[in-house]
Design a binder for these strands. Structure first.
Lengths: 339, 339
DNA sequence: TTGTACGCGTTATCAA
DNA sequence: TTGATAACGCGTACAA
């Protein structure tokens, strides 16, 4: 763990100037003999360029930050899995931030971009307050938001139509003959929560089904909270023949509670989730889920950011919005075949 | 996205020298009046210190790297979840590396530490070659290895006794009356693969059960590969009454195949996994699994690294080894109660 | 083709 | 208490 060699060390050893060393290492035209000596010295010393010095000079950190609520959520995980290789291929390192869905922390991350530790940021806000929107616009580095963001923010944006997603699932349930379709949601003050609540109402209306408060319950986007919400739902004693869940974790919780209650899935109650994570595919019965293209959204976001970082021309291009189409993945929890 | 203010900008605005600005910002004794002016200017300008300049000067990046095979594996994910907050609390950012279990990539990560982009590294190698061991010893920053590493490497080490883990599971199965206990493993040229293979033999011997090749199958540590391995196992036509799987993903694959084959779990065949991930708890039936304390290993590793980084004294302290005890978490896949 | 010298933004030393 | 100034390691005009 000795002191690291610098271009100065190499210069001495090779008997040339630091400028020559720098030139060789950056592939600038140099006399072959010099190149040889420098490379030999660098190799012997195990030289690795100091990233701080390089960043300071070049004004580039070769890092990209990714900020989401909680890396434990499989949706974000899928995104990381896609983002990471895209960045790596372009020579960027990935810095991870778990914000706990706390707006203040998200704002802090945006602010810290001013320190230039990262060249850009991919952000997934859960709650979109005015302060957050302001902070996004004021960010000192390119930001790509996954999720919807007002146009005024002026940043690139990868979104999906979760309204259409809910619609797809409800159409499917309706086609299967279900008419008492409950909805278990996450917090209404979150962007996805609000959107999915509205989508549920709209979809019911489009199908000519009545909106019944007894069929709606709000918890949080986690398994235990989802289970609790479903328990409350059942306690209200409505005749339910399907449960639409605002994400897969809630759907898993629903399976737990239904099993507990001795109800068969899908014979007695069909269950559908959203996000189409591994958990949905891995559950028993496998859960029908609306894919919101997490992997694709992650990849597209990384690509958008890289495009911004590529050159000055594209850095000033107008904001781009990419939409990923939701898709219904039908499994045994709605239509099957559980044995 | 304007040009970032520097201490120079602040100095001008406040009518003082850059030295004073630096002093104020670092909390060194300064005249109150100066402090006020500087802070006001800094605030108005939205000043954020440049991290590259700071790192260059202080020789600290305030970043820690974490390198594992694949962030998609729930075990590593659990570790990240624990590591992240510990680092954050200490003022470090987390840089993520997925190496794809490729030794060359791991060596590259170790080498790149010479660039000082991170102050330390937490590494989980899957295969421990001589080159890797050499690279670990030669690393230019503190490294903590999760998993076993030879003493010569001289680095801090968080390990678990997977041998004991296998033993716990086999004892449990034996106590339940199972005598034909199969073992489905991952690649034998990986550290965990080799250790668990040996552990299986030992545990059988300790229980007085014969080692039967027909009961052993090797695949990979993933669900699909695990399923394929179990399929091959069943094709050999041994009378199996329990399957010990080298990790939870394999166990999930086993459930898939057993269900396919019309075998009941645990009545016909009991299934146990390792790692005790969420997937094991979430499966149906819930899978008995040996917890290797992933979360705790992650946390301890982060703490060990922080201790090394804390001050020069501890930086030179002798290597520390922390052991996390495995624990058997019994669920319905071995003992239950599935209806 | 090569070397000298300066600047990137901070911190730290030394006089004043 | 403060300001001028020298590093930190690298890249790059500019001069030789």
């Amino acid at each position: 763990m000795g002191e690291g060699p610098t271009i100065g060390t190499i210069a001495e050893r090779a008997g040339v100037s630091t400028a020559s060393v720098s030139r060789v290492l950056n592939g600038l035209p140099t006399r072959p003999e010099t190149v040889r000596k420098v490379l030999a010295a660098a190799d012997e010393l195990g030289y690795v360029p100091n990233s701080a010095a390089r960043s300071l000079k070049s004004r580039r950190s070769h890092q990209v930050a990714f900020a989401m609520a909680d890396i434990g959520n499989p949706v974000y995980l899928e995104m990381v899995r896609e983002i990471q290789p895209v960045l790596k291929a372009a020579g960027y390192r990935l810095v991870l931030h778990s914000t706990g869905a706390d707006v203040a922390e998200e704002i802090e991350v945006l602010r810290s971009l001013g320190g230039r530790y990262a060249d850009g940021l991919i952000l997934i806000p859960l709650r979109l307050t005015a302060e957050l929107a302001a902070a996004i616009s004021a960010a000192r580095a390119p930001v790509v938001v996954i999720g919807s963001v007002p146009e005024e923010a002026g940043v690139d944006n990868v979104r999906t139509d979760s309204r259409l997603g809910v619609r797809l699932a409800l159409d499917h349930l309706y086609a299967l003959g279900r008419r008492r379709i409950a909805f278990v949601n996450g917090p209404l003050d979150t962007v996805p929560g609000a959107a999915r609540a509205a989508a549920y109402r709209d979809a019911l209306a489009a199908l000519g089904l009545p909106y019944d408060e007894k069929l709606v319950e709000v918890g949080d986007f986690y398994r235990a909270e989802g289970a609790a919400a479903v328990r409350r739902l059942l306690a209200k004693g409505p005749d339910v023949d399907a449960i639409m869940c605002a994400n897969d974790l809630i759907a898993l919780g629903a399976l737990d509670v239904l099993r507990e209650a001795g109800l068969r899935v899908p014979e007695d109650v069909a269950v559908a989730g959203m996000d189409d994570t591994d958990l949905a595919a891995g559950a028993w019965p496998p859960i029908t889920s609306v894919s919101l293209g997490s992997a694709e959204r992650g990849r597209r976001a990384a690509e958008l950011l890289l495009a911004r970082l590529a050159d000055d021309a594209s850095a000033k291009a107008p904001r781009k919005v990419v939409s990923v189409r939701p898709e219904l993945v039908i499994r045994a929890s709605t239509k099957g075949g559980t044995r």
